[in-house]
Nucleic acid binder design. Structure first.
Lengths: 198, 198, 198, 198
DNA sequence: TATGAATGAGGCTTCATTCAT
DNA sequence: CATGAATGAAGCCTCATTCAT
């Protein structure tokens, strides 16, 4: 990749990050291209040099975030042999990612409302990909009989929901630091998948 | 209440229901007054007889849905003495409500993005009210030592998140009927709040 | 058709006429919706109540003009039995129509540059329809051996071209009145289709 | 002229040719500088080294085409003594030029819509110049009494119109080769200016 | 000479809102 | 009460043009 291409890519990433952050806060439709540009000290028109249109900007941010998330979870699976530890790590990471990258939108919004056609397909596939990694983590715990095979999907959805929902209530000013919070959430969520012992 | 007032109220409810359903599907900003009106076989202009503006329509729907939810959970608390049963019932009801009334929006969207000023205050208060009812259900389980007092809020948020998230993945065509689904979700979610017995 | 529908139709026609006249003078791309609206003492937005978009407005004007032209020529064919007289009348009418209705655009512009898909199909069909009426007039003169059957299309194109071109040079301030002009043009053009007698 | 100047001139001609061809096909306003550049494997910015702006590019192309046409017709007049033959040759040449150089735009578009001020004056003068050459050809036929002196302008306009219109209907795939076509058109058009002999 | 990047004016379009009837 | 019609603010997008390198 040439130097110039690299520079362009970097700029695109900058734009995506800035845009994501604003959209996260105000919502896609309440965010104007003007604002996104101003926030980067550019003009509206310049954005169109990097992205075909507003929709394209949204799409590419989503893809980026989802791909990063998939990368994260994949590497966790690869590096942890103990199933429980792996899941724990995955949950913690997911939560931290949500907080730091402001990626709720990517993870948490009904994609049908924002995408269609090929874009929708891509987004759904990426989400599915991520979900499958979570499923694998859950399946690795099967032998512990914590959950039944046929419930994997359901349990996965409960976990993701509980986590993604965070953005609704999480505040950096809260009594718990983000580390402690992640730890505590992980602890409670793990109860869902741990063996009952009545 | 005069007959006229009654009729007006009924019409308002009709509009709210129709609007809620469309907004739920397409999102607030993707739903036009035109569409809402057409769906009710009226014209755009007529909506303004019943609601001050689009924002007001949204606000009133949210209030209605939240009040109903609060009514639901309050009556559950009143009618169930056994803490575990009460919580179970509340979860089941919440889920069913989500599915039937398409109320995710009311429950699940960041209110700061859609409301401000007095409206925001009202919405936040109603949500808080609902949350407190859930908290009470959780507190009633304290004695069972399933969760610690200071974690009530966190656990409540996990539960609500896991449930509200449903709309993202629930499909009427799924393998489980909505009853079974509610039951199963309840079962797994209860594990979060049940006594650990390591 | 109800009174209201009629009124709407009338308004649409008004808009079309005004728009046609401006577009005729300045060209489609040099004419803004703003201008068209201002010329009718309306606001930009109102135009969109009557026409889906600028393209649609153009399309509908073209259709209207073409349909009128077809009506004109059809009635000429019906009412004139003498072939030469009929053709003469058709030429005169065409010329007068061009001058009065400012319809060059409809008749004279490369439709591929302005329309596509269904719109293009419709326009082409209407133009074809008009052309066929002209052809019929020419064919009626066959027996006079002025032109050969296989040259009908060519001759028709020469005639239409010579006429449509008018807008390039016609000026109301010219030395000839529009009647005389039409008559003279007709006279010369008829020479193309009259029997040679070398 | 220095080598550098020569090279620049050559490049300008290349650009003009490419631009003319695209503009001919899509229209001036539907053609972007981007496209013109891409077609020549350059970038947008480079065009501005050769032409002050888009308008200037259009203007210079028009001038070039018109000057060539004038050159053509002037040499025909010079080289043909027989009036009828000269006119015949001029018509044929005009037609061939239209087809080969895609010069309809230059010949056939209302200049007021595209030019103003000095540019407009220049264009009008060139057109006038060309027209006068045609007029001279027609006047040379006066003695044959085919047309009256005062009708020269009218007849010239009919001829030019009939020819320029070609672009609307001419297709390289048509049944007639371009040579035959030119010949046939010439034959019919000559009828306008030939002596009637009733 | 050439170009990648940035700019900003201008135009199209949407849609909540108003209002006379 | 209802509605057809009109409005205007706001936002998206295009593209000719500029300019530092």
């Amino acid at each position: 990749m040439s130097l110039r291409t690299l520079k362009t890519k970097k700029k695109k990433t900058e734009i995506i990050q800035s845009a994501t952050s604003i959209i996260e806060e105000k919502g896609f439709h309440n965010t104007t291209m003007e604002e996104i540009a101003a926030n980067l000290l550019m003009t509206k028109g310049s954005l169109y040099y990097y992205f075909k249109n507003k929709q394209d900007l949204l799409f590419q941010s989503q893809v980026l975030l989802l791909e990063q998330s998939i990368g994260n979870i994949a590497s966790i699976i690869e590096n942890n042999t103990n199933p429980k530890n792996a899941l724990k790590k995955a949950i913690t990471t997911h939560i931290e990612y949500l907080i730091e990258e402001q990626a709720t939108f990517a993870m948490g919004v009904n994609p049908e409302q924002f995408f269609e056609g090929d874009q929708l397909d891509t987004i759904l596939e990426l989400r599915h990909n991520y979900a499958q990694h979570v499923d694998q983590l859950l399946l690795n715990m099967m032998e512990e009989k914590a959950i039944e095979t046929k419930d994997v999907k359901l349990v996965r959805n409960l976990l993701l929901g509980a986590m993604n929902w965070m953005i609704e209530w999480y505040s950096p000013q809260g009594s718990l630091g983000s580390d402690e919070l992640a730890e505590k959430m992980t602890m409670y969520l793990m109860k869902i998948v741990e063996t009952e012992s009545k």
